[in-house]
Design a protein around this nucleic acid. Sequence first.
DNA 1: CGTGCCATGTAAAGCGTTACATGATTCA
DNA 2: TGAATCATGTAACGCTTTACATGGCACG
Lengths: 199, 199
Amino acid sequence: MQYTRFVQSKNSMSLAYALLTSLLVDGAKSGYDLVKLFDEQISCYWIASHQQVYRELREMEQQDWVRSERISQVNRPNKNLYDITELGREELAKWVALPSQPTPIREELMPKLKAGFLVPREVLMAEIRRRQAMHREQLQVLLNMEQQFYPEVGSQDPRSLSYEARLYHLGLRRGIRYQREWVEWCEEALGAIGEYERP
Amino acid sequence: MQYTRFVQSKNSMSLAYALLTSLLVDGAKSGYDLVKLFDEQISCYWIASHQQVYRELREMEQQDWVRSERISQVNRPNKNLYDITELGREELAKWVALPSQPTPIREELMPKLKAGFLVPREVLMAEIRRRQAMHREQLQVLLNMEQQFYPEVGSQDPRSLSYEARLYHLGLRRGIRYQREWVEWCEEALGAIGEYERP
DNA sequence: CGTGCCATGTAAAGCGTTACATGATTCA
DNA sequence: TGAATCATGTAACGCTTTACATGGCACG
């Protein structure tokens, strides 16, 4: 039964809350807009497919955590605009105060490395270079976002940001640090493997 | 049908390969041993519950990627000792050569931060301090492992490690860097939030 | 006498991905 | 003409977690 899900489930259902957060901070949105937002800005710490988002929104509406309004549009499909309700806001506040769980890590590259002696060194190194390029690119995207949204940061007075903006900015910082760290590890790995080139 | 899973599935099924890797590198093991190994040594880049492990082993046995032997023990439950087969080794080698996918990140703390203005500052800071302590502890565990398994590292000649050991070591390095990065981000976050203490 | 380790499993539910579907508009 | 964007959905499947279950042994 769907009903029990939001009532007695003990696990996190964090996607619901992540969506509520966006509705609260960024305002009413359609499912499509939320997917785009997640893709573009939130993906550094949360990813979700459009199917998940639409499903979650429908279920949250049944629980009165959000309400929706049908917006008729000409020359393009109609859309459902979702907004957070008072109840949703209360539930969100409760959730925020709960302890958070770290993301479960399942990093394919690590077992591949551990079994890496099964393939030629060049294959491993090519793969690490590919990963490094990916993470470098993501890092650049995040740095650009930081420049764009928080140009004051890095200057003399970080207090020029509002408290809310600063909190959000810390999320970006986390993404930046994460990607940078990956790029550096790749460098270390390439160096280490390279040293075994011709013994 | 179970059969199709290993034949035409397009997704990664990486747990199977992660298990194969351990069987190949660390030798034949029971499900219980694999769970313990993952908990203690692999959790920095892979986590799996015992239910997953047991099921995966049974399914891999049906595909002849592993074979098992029943070990009768006195004074404790019997166990099934699994070992990788030649076919398993071939499949593993194929998989290693494939491009790897980054772990999907779903970090609860970030949306909580974004909606953090809903709760008192002290609640946020307490949570970040808790996370910092967790990551500090994990970092220490990994550093101890590094000391224990690779005492030579950091000394003059990292080439004293075999190629296989060095590859495995790189996985550890990744975990160390990840945890260290988290500890540092927490420091940054605490500093940033602290600055808003009394405006 | 309770807790924790050893050792394996079933069942159900929740969460996430993949595939499929529709249909108009805009831009190259 | 073909691809991309807007906008939402269903169905099926696969992966992960949670809860429940068993039972002896060792240790304090």
